[in-house]
């Protein structure tokens, strides 16, 4: 008996215990693993904050293509560290991931913000948004920008110190 005898369900369960970086590596093993690695169940929740056991994304451009290829309809939860909170990534999430319901934006390590002047799309089916504030920068402008997209929201969760 070898690993190829395992059912799809069992292999997907195995894949559910490894992180997305390893999952993408496993998708190169053989054709069957490649197909199974695309299963929507594996891409529902995506964790990208290294300090919370998430995967560390270094190349934000490559990451953009993964949003449109893998996350798509499956994605329901994602957390983004400060360096991935960009106009491009937020636009891509808004366009490609209509089932995204729970978004965490972690600005806690931010010393300065990306420019959100061009932000004109934002995930608009969110039920929960969690925003981790930075101690040193104000998010007022950003909050003003995203406010119109939050009408479906049930919970607004803000972590950190509000400074006025």
């Amino acid at each position: 008996c070898d690993i190829s005898m395992l059912s799809d369900k069992s292999l997907i369960l195995i894949f559910s215990y490894i992180n997305h970086q390893e999952l993408l590596r496993c998708s190169l093993v053989c054709r069957r693993w490649y197909q199974l690695s695309k299963n929507g169940r594996l891409w529902r929740r995506v964790y990208l904050r290294p300090e919370y056991h998430g995967v560390h994304v270094i190349n934000a451009n490559k990451f953009l293509s993964v949003i449109s290829k893998r996350f798509t309809l499956a994605l329901q939860y994602i957390d983004l560290p400060m360096d991935l909170i960009t106009v491009d990534i937020l636009h891509e999430l808004a366009n490609k991931c209509p089932n995204l319901k729970h978004l965490t934006l972690d600005f806690s390590a931010a010393m300065q913000l990306h420019d959100f002047h061009d932000l004109n799309m934002f995930p608009c089916n969110l039920k929960i948004i969690c925003i981790c504030l930075s101690d040193v920068i104000f998010l007022e402008g950003f909050m003003r920008k995203i406010y119109p997209y939050l009408s479906s929201l049930d919970i607004l969760h803000i972590i950190g110190k509000l400074t006025f």
Binding site: D2, I3, S4, C26, L28, V29, C30, R31, R32, W33
Partner: peptide, 15 residues
């Protein structure tokens, strides 16, 4: 992926 194939004796089947 190479090491995984080796470990589980999976033959490479180009996707």
């Amino acid at each position: 992926s190479d090491q995984v194939r080796q470990m589980f004796n999976i033959s490479y089947d180009p996707p």
